[in-house]
Computed example of a mutant assay.
Amino acid sequence: MSIRRVDLANAKHMPWKNGAGSTAELAIAPPGASLDDFAWRISSAKVAGHGSFSSFSGLDRSLAILSGAGLRLHSEASAPLELTTDSQPWAFQGETTVYAELIDGEVTDFNLISRRADWTHDLQSLNISTSHRLAAAEQTTVLMIYCHAGGPLTCQFKGEQQLLSAGQGLLLDEADAKHAITLSTQIPSKVYLAHLQQRASH
């Protein structure tokens, strides 16, 4: 895979069947996979109404709020949770029954989902005011760096640099993720990092 760029402006948009929102697919593996057979998927969704999450049995999910007042989440797994733009992403199992209420109007969220039998993942948000150094990720198969707001964000590693504007990201393979990366910006930026690790085959 080496280095692959993703761009929200070029993402495939899919309206929900219930009319309560739409999803923009930023990346999916393997490329061209369907919702029934993907290994992992990164997307952003506009949520316009209250409703229950779709069930994804056997998959793990992480959810973050990009814009809007946020979601009030009711699940069987935990006490009610308010997820806002200030929250770290919420990780949960795809088969968990979750009902989401809009706190105050439409929100845009960010989703990472992976097949539990084959992959593990971790999604986190960072607020970068000047620069931030990412240590070499020895146990990462795929690393995603996504600039949500601010920027342009300079990603420097292996003696080269990539520039990301808001709504753009990089997918790095295992070889590139093993190098330290410096993220720098002149405008405070909100960045999402996803580490995906493929489980060893049995």
Rank of each mutant, 00 (worst) to 15 (best):
Q168K: 09
Y99F: 15
S131L: 03
T96E: 15
A100N: 07
D109C: 04
H121V: 09
T130L: 09
S78L: 08
S54T: 12
L102I: 07
A180F: 02
G167C: 03
S55N: 07
S43W: 12
V98F: 06
F92V: 05
Q161I: 00
E101L: 07
A137M: 14
I42Y: 11
S165I: 09
Q162F: 15
I181M: 12
L134T: 04
T141V: 11
H132R: 11
Q168N: 08
E101N: 11
Q139K: 08
I65C: 06
S43G: 11
E138K: 13
T96V: 14
V142T: 12
R133W: 07
V142D: 02
R133N: 10
T85K: 10
A91K: 07
L143G: 01
G58Y: 12
N127C: 15
H74N: 14
V98E: 01
T154F: 00
Q124R: 15
E82S: 07
S125I: 08
L171K: 02
A166I: 02
G105K: 06
E174V: 08
Q168T: 10
S114H: 08
T85M: 13
S165R: 09
H148A: 15
F110D: 00
E82D: 12
S114E: 03
A48H: 03
L63N: 00
I181C: 12
G105M: 05
P89V: 00
K158I: 14
I42W: 06
G151T: 04
Q186P: 08
I65K: 04
L102T: 06
K46W: 10
H121M: 07
A91L: 06
T97G: 06
G68W: 02
Q168H: 10
K178F: 04
V142F: 12
D118S: 15
G49S: 15
F53T: 02
A64L: 05
P80C: 10
F92G: 02
S114A: 13
V47Q: 00
I103C: 13
A77L: 08
T141I: 09
T140S: 01
T97Q: 10
N127E: 15
S44W: 01
A45D: 00
D118G: 13
L126Y: 01
S165T: 08
L134M: 13
S67Y: 02
A166M: 01
V47P: 01
G159K: 03
D109L: 05
F157D: 00
L83Q: 04
I181E: 01
S55A: 08
S184T: 15
L172V: 10
G167M: 05
